[in-house]
Amino acid sequence: MNAIAQSIIDAHGGLTQWRKFKQVRADLVQGGALWVLKGQSGVLDRTTVTVATDRQWASHAPFGTLAAKSEFTRERISLLDEGGNVIQALEKPRGFFEGHTLETSWNALQLAFFAGCAMWTYLNTPFVLAWDGVECEEAGEWAEQGETWRKILVRYPESLEVFSKVQAIYVGPDNLVRRLDYDVEIAGNTPGAHYVSDYTTVSGIRIPTRRRIYPRLPDGNCAAEPLVVSIDLSGIALT
């Protein structure tokens, strides 16, 4: 972990404190145009999300009316009933997005993969910068919301399942994350600008409770509409 990652991680509570916990759990309320576009409106509007901090694993429970919960890993996505029995499962799920565009509909397992990958990444940021193989470097300054932010270019290794291997994190003067940029490869490389705010402190860790994602324009600014995804978190617990 280099000095850039260290400064950002320290501002969010520090790696020593983070590594005391194995999971993050939160009540999740979601909205935005993406779920309608993908034919999955309402499935994950209100649920509980849990992610691991020491491995790439995530779960949404309930998974709408379709399953008691989902389980996401890099190699497998599955939907399970109340007894833990597998209802549906898919091995190497990323390959099933081949040729997808932003308008391509998803089935339930594809939704579970997208949601699991997304929330694992979001809730592990910025501590994922300390993972083996993750690299970051300064990429200049960016003026937005009346502040000057540091833009950090992040490269992820093949061993991690993320939306795109090269992303950007913007941090404010306090070194807290303000924005994430990525291109969603499994949805036709759709560019997104993902804003985080309304931080709370849970067990010594600073966590944003509000997330809003908009289309990212070629000049790096975001379009005012549509609101692609909204995420609001409450009842956050680290265990």
Rank of each mutant, 00 (worst) to 15 (best):
Y182V: 11
T209K: 06
W142Y: 15
I9V: 15
D81Y: 08
L44K: 08
L123R: 04
T50F: 01
S59V: 02
G64Q: 08
N189D: 14
A224F: 06
A33S: 14
L34F: 15
G32T: 09
V171P: 08
P208R: 06
L111M: 10
V51R: 07
F97W: 03
A5E: 00
H60P: 00
F21T: 04
L160R: 03
H60L: 14
V184K: 05
E71W: 01
I152C: 03
F113L: 02
N107M: 07
A139P: 02
N175E: 11
N107G: 11
S105N: 10
G220I: 09
V24I: 15
A193G: 13
N2E: 10
V134Y: 04
E98K: 13
G14M: 08
G64K: 08
R55G: 00
F72P: 07
D183G: 05
F114P: 03
T201A: 06
E91C: 00
Q23A: 07
G83A: 12
C136S: 13
L129P: 10
I186F: 14
G192L: 15
I186P: 00
V24C: 11
W106T: 02
K69L: 04
A33E: 14
V128K: 00
E147P: 00
T65D: 15
R206I: 09
D10F: 01
R150Q: 15
F97Q: 06
G146F: 10
T121R: 10
P218K: 01
Y195T: 02
I186T: 14
E225T: 12
W18G: 03
A26C: 08
W142K: 10
G84Q: 05
G192C: 14
I207M: 15
Q145E: 14
A26R: 07
T190Q: 13
L28H: 01
I205Q: 07
I207F: 11
Y122H: 11
A237W: 01
L102W: 13
T190L: 12
V49S: 04
L111G: 04
D54S: 10
E225N: 10
T48V: 14
L111W: 03
E147V: 07
F72R: 08
D81R: 06
T53W: 04
D27Q: 08
G83F: 06
E147D: 09
I4S: 00
E225C: 02
L109A: 01
I77E: 10
L34A: 13
L79Y: 07
E158P: 04
E75D: 15
K22N: 13
T125R: 02
A130N: 12
T16W: 00
A139L: 03
Q56M: 13
G99Y: 09
A67K: 10
F113E: 09
P126W: 00
Q145V: 07
T209W: 06
T73G: 09
L123F: 11
L238W: 04
E161P: 02
R216L: 08
A118K: 01
T125H: 00
V128T: 07
S164I: 05
H60T: 09
H194T: 08
G14V: 07
E147S: 09
V171H: 07
S105K: 15
V49K: 02
N107W: 04
A224V: 09
V196F: 04
D232F: 00
V166D: 12
E161C: 13
A68E: 14
E82K: 13
K92V: 11
S197K: 12
L66E: 11
T47D: 05
A5D: 01
